[in-house]
């Protein structure tokens, strides 16, 4: 079995802010805002202290749910795990191939047909050796888009687009899956299909970290939960405890 492990040790992330009148914003006391992490200043530069001392240890099969208000640092943590954000302080170790399903629409243009979109994503995230026709068939049956795959994406409804993206997002097997909220789009029947597909994917994926506001979705996949608050992990434990902590505050 390939190694599959995530280890974070006291990870801090400060994101520099480039805004007009940086310091005036500060003086107005914006840094005590209810939403978000902490805004602070050093050497006259404003930054958001987006992650504060996160320590985390995850091994194969320990699927983790990230819970927290908007702007509490859930997506930021996923991006650190994916290697998109380099940590300002602390140590990040990720072993295994990472599938990052944060924004599947990157680089997809409205003029691409469904097929081209699949081909493009295959180029970006797939294996050059495998045949993309197999992928097309898999996604065509899963999304039920049929003949629409021949049409450019600009003719798609939001739901159809979401189906295609969800199909693509779950098309490849990865050791570590990082999923941000919003993957659960489409109608009820499609939701069922999608959750079956994700469950299938998880049988071979070693580790899942998912950020979501839907307790039902989280309960389906995760046993562990972490509650985020202003960039800090205020508790890490079983999912039930975490959900309880999140709703009651203790």
């Amino acid at each position: 079995m390939t190694p599959c492990r995530i280890s974070l040790r006291n990870v801090h992330l400060r994101i520099p802010v480039f805004a007009p009148n940086q310091l005036r914003l500060l003086r107005r006391g914006l840094f005590k805002a209810a939403v978000g992490g902490n805004i602070a200043e050093s050497n006259g530069k404003v930054h958001v202290h987006a992650l504060r001392g996160i320590s985390l240890e995850l091994n194969r099969g320990e699927h983790l749910a990230l819970i927290g208000h908007n702007g509490s640092g859930k997506t930021t943590l996923l991006k650190v795990l994916a290697g998109i954000y380099p940590p300002t302080e602390g140590e990040v170790q990720v072993e295994g191939t990472v599938g990052c399903l944060i924004d599947m629409e990157a680089g997809v243009t409205a003029e691409m047909s469904g097929y081209e979109c699949i081909k493009f994503q295959h180029l970006l995230y797939g294996n050059p050796q495998e045949d993309w026709q197999v992928l097309v068939e898999d996604i065509a049956t899963f999304t039920e888009l049929g003949g629409y795959l021949e049409l450019p994406l600009r003719t798609y409804s939001a739901g159809m687009r979401a189906r295609l993206m969800a199909g693509l997002a779950t098309a490849w097997r990865r050791d570590i899956l990082l999923i941000d909220e919003g993957i659960g789009a489409g109608d009820t029947a499609f939701q069922e299909k999608l959750s079956r597909r994700i469950a299938q994917l998880l049988e071979s994926a070693g580790l899942l970290v998912i950020a979501s506001h839907s307790p039902d979705l989280l309960k389906r996949y995760c046993a562990r939960g972490a509650v985020f608050d202003h960039g800090q992990a205020s508790m890490i434990g079983s999912l039930d405890e975490a959900l309880h902590f999140y709703s009651t505050g203790n």
Binding site: I84, C100, I102, D103, G107
Partner: peptide, 11 residues
């Protein structure tokens, strides 16, 4: 031009 990739993908 490639900001959506740089910000969201592992490429």
């Amino acid at each position: 031009n490639y900001s959506s990739f740089v910000k969201n993908s592992t490429i």
